[in-house]
């Protein structure tokens, strides 16, 4: 009987919780110029079907596809709902009727990370186990999550001089718990250089999100690039 008491909690997690983009074998990577830290599954689909070229916060985005591979198959199955053949037909329809352009297609995860890192607005996907640098990882908000919750005050972390001089960089991953009012309640470091993590943690605690009916946990990735 007691287990029934957990049902509302389970439902709340399913409805309002966010999941890390790496769930299901892929993580969504974006150029640091993309302001958003999260993207809804519906937005992701629209971007990769060339229906949208900007996110709800106005960030310009352009999709980058993998040519093949496990991450590619997993991404199409989970987020696009089309096979590679059907997706190619979709793009060719756009191209030859003048209603869209062919997206960039790259052969490997390494190429995708490199291209996304250097191309303004680029957004792609790679294997979830792959370490990445120079790109940000976007959280995917599942269906039912509050899609209006967005970052309205962002404080950039300081890059410690010593580390920058020594060209020590990397990405810090944080789990951020946001109150219903939008302030950051708590931050947990998930990974990254300890000194950079400390700097990121200080900054993120000052961030403010839009209000929401419930507390939300969001995973945030902050890249520190010693050669900007």
């Amino acid at each position: 009987m007691k287990s029934y008491r957990l049902l509302p909690l389970v439902a709340a997690v399913v409805m309002f919780g966010s999941v890390h983009a790496s769930a299901g074998g892929v993580k969504i990577v974006a150029n640091p110029s993309v302001r958003a830290d999260s993207i809804t599954a519906a937005e992701l689909r629209s971007v990769f079907l060339a229906e949208k070229r900007s996110l709800r916060d106005g960030s310009h985005v352009e999709p980058v596809l993998a040519k093949s591979g496990m991450a590619h198959e997993a991404f199409l199955k989970r987020y696009i709902g089309k096979s590679d053949d059907v997706l190619q037909t979709h793009y060719r329809t756009l191209v030859f009727t003048g209603t869209g352009l062919m997206p960039k297609v790259l052969a490997s995860d390494a190429e995708i990370i490199h291209y996304v890192g250097k191309t303004k607005g680029a957004i792609g996907y790679v294997d979830s186990d792959l370490p990445v640098e120079g790109v940000k990882i976007l959280t995917i908000l599942q269906a039912g999550a509050n899609t209006e919750r967005r970052l309205i005050t962002r404080v950039e972390p300081e890059y410690p001089d010593t580390l920058q001089r020594l060209r020590i960089g990397g990405t810090v991953r944080l789990s951020v718990t946001v109150s219903p009012k939008g302030s950051v309640d708590s931050v947990q470091v998930l990974g990254g250089n300890p000194i950079l993590s400390e700097s990121a943690l200080k900054a993120v605690k000052q961030w403010v999100y839009t209000a929401s009916p419930s507390q939300t946990t969001i995973e945030v990735s902050i890249p520190f690039n010693p050669r900007p």
């Binding site: 191209v95 003048g98 869209g100």
Partner: peptide, 18 residues
């Protein structure tokens, strides 16, 4: 047969011909 050229001028503007 046919051929086309297209360009995304801005996020919102695209031009092309076939």
């Amino acid at each position: 047969f046919g051929a086309n050229a297209s360009m995304q001028v801005t996020d919102k503007l695209r031009v092309g011909a076939q």
